[in-house]
Design a protein around this nucleic acid. Structure first.
Length: 472
RNA sequence: GCGCCCAUCGUCUAGCGGUCCAGGACGUUGCCCUUUCACGGCAAAAACACGGGUUCGAGUCCCGUUGGGCGCGCCA
């Protein structure tokens, strides 16, 4: 038994979307589980739509998710000569033929089929026609001489045995009239040349799989094992679109999700291991198998992702979480500004506050928000509503409190709390409303956010309003 | 239209003929904890799409219906 080789083969026409990320994850898990390799192939044969930016986004997305591939990425376009050579061979052996149909002709063919209620398929008009009849000035496309009768069977690792009537699969184009290879041809040749043993991809490729089998057969090559995994749909069950979660993985990074949490969420979309919900990377690798991949499409659910992310944040060791946060910070909204402001002292303060902060954070953005009292400009300003609500006397009382806090010779949670407790009693507000932010901030370290700051920055307008009421 | 696939709580799913008056998780609701929020604890509501078979017995097997998805390019 030779080593397993899988591949992830995105086309660089956009970012790495969530479905692609899961396909990559499944491939990666399968490779790691079997001790094999995952290769990366960039399917850039569509020159017009392929961009370097998309290639970068895909590579970056995979790296962020921690899905490392083996060896150098293969760029499909660089292999055109090989693809052409294979087609030449097929031509010579009669498993492919030249088709002189024009685009208009094909268009008419499809239109007629639609009008007559027939499936839109190439009718094979050049299949057995004498090349001598070729019209002058028309560059031919090369088509596969596909079997017209019988059926093609795919033994799929997740879909089971799937049978296609060959009558429904027409003679696909292998080489375009401009001499460039099509996706169908390139995939087969590249998978073969790269030694791919297992193809794991979305079910949207299932029909393609049958046609590709025809190419393998025409070439006399072994067909790799295949596993077509179900697609991910939007929350409403329809195809994932922009307004759902069809964002690039970098968008999830910007929303403050941890790659480990996203991975965990993704692996449970379609795959399960009994009732287990949380999997470390090592566990996933050890337990992942194609047998337990379901066949029905899953809907993307942000609420569950968020919950999972919160669990990961809470469970993370402080040092690890701090490291993750530092790495992610530049990508978070307002993160760049925060990063610029965080000097060594503030980082220390942040690290001190982290144990308290992470208990109530579901995303890294929540963590950043929670630390806003550390980052706000001094002296602090009350927000407009509070400014309007508070009487001068109330403001003075708040400032006095701030003074009391700032004046504490030894700053710690108990001392601060004592001051705050007195204030709370005076003002008739609940201690928890002011003490909790303090506790989160202080946690015994030399951080001193005066309560004035805390109230103003956290924008607790309802508290301020209540204080204002009491004050006059 | 034709082909292929899918169908268990709102969502992700467990279930591979009896141990399922269907289990877990998210979400929702209630209670507890908490002098805010969150976390945590407890509890509740919530599903085998429908109809036929097969079988002593079906969520589990077969067929059909309905609903949904994917594919049908000289795109990938």
């Amino acid at each position: 038994m030779s080593e397993t080789v899988v591949r992830f083969a995105p086309s660089p026409t956009g970012f790495l979307h969530i479905g692609g990320a899961r396909t990559a994850l499944f491939n990666w898990l399968y490779a790691r589980h079997t001790g094999g390799k995952m290769r990366l192939r960039i399917e850039d044969t569509d020159r017009a739509r392929s961009t370097q930016a998309a290639i970068d986004a895909i590579l970056d997305g995979l790296a962020w998710l921690g899905l490392a591939w083996d060896g150098e990425p293969v760029f499909q376009f660089a292999r055109v000569e090989r693809h052409r050579a294979v087609v030449e061979e097929m031509l010579a052996r009669g498993t492919a033929y030249r088709c002189y149909c024009t685009a208009e002709e094909l268009e008419a063919m499809r239109a007629r089929a639609a009008a007559e209620g027939r499936p839109p398929r190439y009718d094979g008009r050049w299949r057995d026609r004498d090349p001598a009849e070729a019209p002058a000035g028309v560059a031919p496309a090369i088509r596969l001489r596909a079997p017209q009768e019988g059926e093609t069977v795919i033994e799929d690792a997740v879909q089971g045995r799937v049978t296609f009537p060959n009558a429904d699969l027409d003679d696909l184009v292998l080489l375009r009239s401009d001499g460039t290879p099509t996706y169908m041809l390139a995939v087969v040749v590249d998978d073969h040349d790269m030694g791919v043993t297992d193809i794991i991809r979305g079910v949207d490729h299932l029909t393609n799989a049958a046609r590709q089998v025809h190419i393998y057969q025409a070439l006399g090559w072994d067909v790799p094992r295949m596993a077509h995994i179900p697609l991910i749909h939007g929350p409403d069950g329809t195809k994932l679109s922009k307004r759902h979660g069809a964002l690039g993985v970098e968008a999830y990074r910007e929303m403050g999700y941890l790659p480990a949490a996203l991975r965990n969420y993704l692996v449970r979309l379609g795959w399960s291991h009994g009732d287990q919900e949380i999997f470390s990377a090592d566990e996933m690798i050890a337990l992942f198998d194609l047998d337990h991949v379901g066949r029905s499409a899953a809907r993307f659910d942000f609420a569950k992702l968020e919950n999972l992310n919160g669990q990961y944040i809470r469970a993370a060791a402080d040092a690890d979480l701090l490291a993750d946060f530092r790495v992610a910070l530049p990508y978070l909204p307002g993160g760049a500004a925060a990063k610029a402001k965080l000097d060594a002292g503030l980082w220390e303060a942040f690290a001190a506050a982290l144990p308290g902060l992470k208990e109530r954070a579901k995303t890294l953005i929540d963590l950043l928000d929670g630390a806003s009292f550390l980052l706000a400009d001094r002296p602090l300003q009350l927000d407009g509503r509070a400014e309007a609500l508070l009487t001068d006397e109330a403001k003075a009382r708040l400032r006095a409190l701030a003074g009391d806090l700032a004046g504490l010779s030894e700053w710690n949670a108990e001392a601060a709390e004592a001051v705050v407790r007195r204030f709370a009693e005076q003002e008739g507000v609940k201690l928890g409303q002011v003490a909790q932010p303090l506790r989160a901030a202080v946690t015994g370290r030399a951080v001193s956010p005066p309560i004035f700051d805390v109230l103003a920055i956290l924008g607790r307008q309802e508290s301020l309003a209540r204080i204002a009421d009491r004050a006059g």
